[in-house]
Design a protein around this nucleic acid. Structure first.
Length: 564
RNA sequence: UGGGGCGUAGCCAAGUGGUUAAGGCACCGGUUUUUGGUACCGGCAUUCGGAGGUUCGAGUCCUCCCGCCCCAGCCA
């Protein structure tokens, strides 16, 4: 057994890996080959990421390979745009298919030939029944189906008809090719499933070369066999198709014998993962596009600032099983915070500015203070932060009549300005309407850097930005797309869209060096959360997206106090 | 009431008949802290959907029952 096959303590363990391990040990396969087979009819989302991590992870863990295969058997739904975005997303997630990029459409000729084999063997026939009639004849869940009057057509006639289907002698939907299996099967998928249909759509890769297209059932397993896939891993809803998958592999002269295994697809709270619903959100303008940072699409998560490594970690933690389960989005958020805590440099940003004038600080003077970039990573170094007489602080960091548990600024109270000085509030200035417009404070020159030589302690540390040096920015505060964990559980799912999933703040005050942050770079705004520079940024106004807020135990305390 | 699956804590999830039912998230306490962040420590299932049975011994085996999910596209 090679190292790659030896499970280690931190290697993920699940029933699929157990099967692979057993297969390798028993010698039923000599190496493993998996595949990720998306249909290019939409953008990839975090549910696909689970499958990608599983398939590529399996290949990696057991020293095999994983193919990227576009399952492009339906020209009516598939587009080049999706083929491109899918490759970009898989790469971004951190996986590499090397030379192994395939398309089911690469196999159309072979698949067609195998269909003829089935016909010659009397195991498939051309049916003239309409779609509606086929449905009627199929029976129901509790009643067996009935045979089509065309079921016993001689092989020669079927072959002739099928060839004519290919050469375009029939209209769309006029005829189909069906497997001849068992119309009385308890498994409806075995009641003579359709193998080929006539479709005159322009295929993104084969153009107008074909007018007959294989169905998923006829294409998938055979494509697996062509590519020597050993473990064809798919989601639970295909479980009932496995007997058909096996039947086709057994009845066709395919080069290898792949096997299908099924696992539960990912479900997440506070969002939707169905392609239909995601398309609806995009097309109806509920979000700004496929890469809207509120969407669970990989492009949306990327723009939101979620690191690929956090998604991989999430996939590893949720495991792989066969029970339908809904994961709390809090676990994903935990993975994001854990990753970013180590990786993101810190900066100060004031999102809801309140002016503070430090009365005993010399006018027109600017000091350069040193701030640590990341206390979790010494190699991130330090930076210079300008300090002056007028600064901005967060409005929520001041209370005129604070409760005793409030550690921030209040009249007569002293706090530490992060990396700067202790200041004490001496006066509160209000406008005629009574709104606080400015604070007057004094600072203690001896506390430079944030330490008092006399050893006196201060309960709170707040962030700030020097007013004359501040950079004005737009900050987009994102929250869960859906207010309830299970959108649509009661009533229309669209009614559960959270009313404030995006709050845009203008005139936020940032440390000056943030002007040059390239889009996609993540950072932490101290005491607030993780943010990422958005591609909408311009030279004049940088734009930052909130990826996720920091844990906020003060908010929890307040909530508890208020809830009494 | 055809066929196929699944039921272990609030949410996931190990467990493959033999000491006190892993682990993570969430939650609740506490320690540390120049982020009310992080880190660290502690707490959190006398019981595995239910009832019987087999066994010296059952979450694991058997029987029955209950609940949930998937399948009646010429979608994948």
């Amino acid at each position: 057994m090679s190292d790659a096959e030896t499970p280690t303590d931190d290697a993920p363990r699940d029933f699929i890996r157990d099967i692979v391990h057993a297969d390798l040990e028993a010698g039923s396969v000599s190496g493993i080959v998996t595949r990720f087979p998306p249909e290019p009819n939409g953008y990839l989302h975090i549910g696909h990421a689970k499958s990608i991590c599983l398939n590529f992870g399996l290949a990696h863990d057991f020293g095999g390979r994983c193919h990227l295969r576009f399952d492009d058997t339906n020209p009516l739904k598939e587009e080049m745009e999706y083929i491109d975005s899918i490759q970009e997303d898989v790469r971004w997630l951190g996986f590499d298919w090397g030379e192994h990029l395939f398309h089911t459409s690469d196999y159309f000729e072979q698949l067609y030939q195998w269909a003829e084999v089935l016909i010659s063997d009397g195991k498939a026939y051309v049916d003239d029944l309409s779609a509606d009639e086929i449905r009627e004849y199929r029976g129901t869940l509790k009643e067996p189906g009935r045979s089509s009057p065309f079921r016993d057509r001689p092989a020669e006639e079927n072959l002739d008809l099928f060839r004519k289907m290919r050469t375009g002698e029939f209209a769309d939907g006029e005829k189909v090719l069906r497997a001849r299996i068992d119309m009385a099967s308890g498994n409806i998928n075995m009641r003579d499933p359709v193998l080929y249909r006539i479709l005159r759509g322009h295929h993104p890769r084969t153009g107008d070369q074909w007018c007959v297209y294989p169905t998923y059932d006829f294409a998938h397993g055979q494509s697996d066999a062509i590519e020597s896939i050993t473990h064809s891993v798919c989601t639970l809803e295909f479980e009932g198709h496995r007997p058909l998958y096996d039947w086709l592999i057994e009845n066709l002269p395919v080069p290898t014998q792949p096997h299908q295994y099924e696992f539960a697809r990912l479900e997440l709270t506070h969002t939707v993962l169905s392609k239909r619903k995601l398309i609806h959100l995009v097309r109806d303008g509920h979000v700004a596009g496929w890469d809207d940072p509120r969407l669970p699409t990989l492009s949306g998560l990327r723009r939101r600032g979620v690191p690929a490594a956090a998604i991989r970690d999430f996939a590893a933690r949720i495991g792989v099983s066969k029970s339908n389960s809904v994961h709390e989005i809090a676990l994903l958020e935990h993975c994001v915070r854990e990753n970013l805590n180590k990786a993101a440099e810190r900066r100060m940003a004031v999102l809801d500015p309140l002016k503070v004038v430090i009365e005993n600080y010399p006018d027109c003077e600017t000091e350069i203070l040193e701030a640590v970039n990341n206390p979790e990573d010494e190699s991130a170094g330090t930076r210079n932060v300008p300090f002056s007489r007028e600064i901005w602080i967060e409005r929520s960091d001041f209370m005129e009549d604070p409760p005793k548990k409030f550690f921030r600024l209040g009249p007569g109270r002293e706090v530490r300005l992060r990396w700067a000085y202790f200041i004490t509030c001496t006066d509160v200035i209000k406008d005629p309407s009574g709104e606080i417009v400015e604070l007057r404070c004094t600072y203690d020159p001896a506390t430079k850097g944030g330490q008092a030589p006399d050893g006196r302690k201060v309960k709170g540390t707040i962030h700030w930005v020097s007013a004359p040096h501040a950079l004005d920015a737009e900050v987009r505060l994102y929250d869960h797309l859906f207010a309830r964990p299970d959108p649509g559980a009661e009533g229309d799912w669209l009614d559960d869209l959270a009313p404030h999933s995006l709050e845009i703040r203008h005139g936020c005050k940032l440390e000056p060096d943030l002007a040059t942050f390239e889009p996609g770079r993540t950072l932490q705004f101290e005491r607030q959360g993780y943010f990422v520079a958005d591609p909408d940024s311009t030279v004049d106004t940088p734009v930052f997206n909130r990826t996720i807020g920091l844990r906020d135990s003060w908010a929890k305390i307040q909530k508890k106090a208020g809830g009494k």
